[in-house]
Amino acid sequence: MVRLITHNLLACHAKGCNSNNFPLPFSNVQIEIREAEFNPEFLKAFLPKIEWKALVDTAKQLGDMSLPLEQPEMMDDDFLKSFHHVLLEIHVEEGVMTCPNCKHEYPISNGIPNMLLAEHEIG
């Protein structure tokens, strides 16, 4: 299930891993597309929380090119539809997220990512 909205909010949190720890690129993914409720107000309100480049790059990595490289000033319907689809309808069911900095691997199984740290990774 890891949706891109979630992925956009997750950073590596291993001890001492404070930079270059986001986003966590996917590998070996199994993807499913599932419809979600379209709520333009929610999307508009949530947009400021999104790291735009990370979202675009991740979508691209998963084969979706519908988002503009720059976050648009005007949010028309077409844009909101693509944004909605990328943010909420792409689900990564299986795969791994790997920290670009410390290389910690966060595995995903049956849609649930395991973000637990091992003992040497906590403070």
Binding site: I5, E37, N110, M115, L116, G123
Partner: peptide, 30 residues
């Protein structure tokens, strides 16, 4: 996962955005 099965029973599984495994005292929220 059980939580998705129960959510489906109530017709709300699309609103469960995600489930994650972590210790809240070592959490990955960006």
């Amino acid at each position: 996962p059980g939580v998705f099965r129960a959510a489906a029973q109530y017709g709300v599984s699309a609103r469960i955005l995600d489930l994650l495994t972590f210790d809240v005292t070592h959490n990955p929220w960006r």
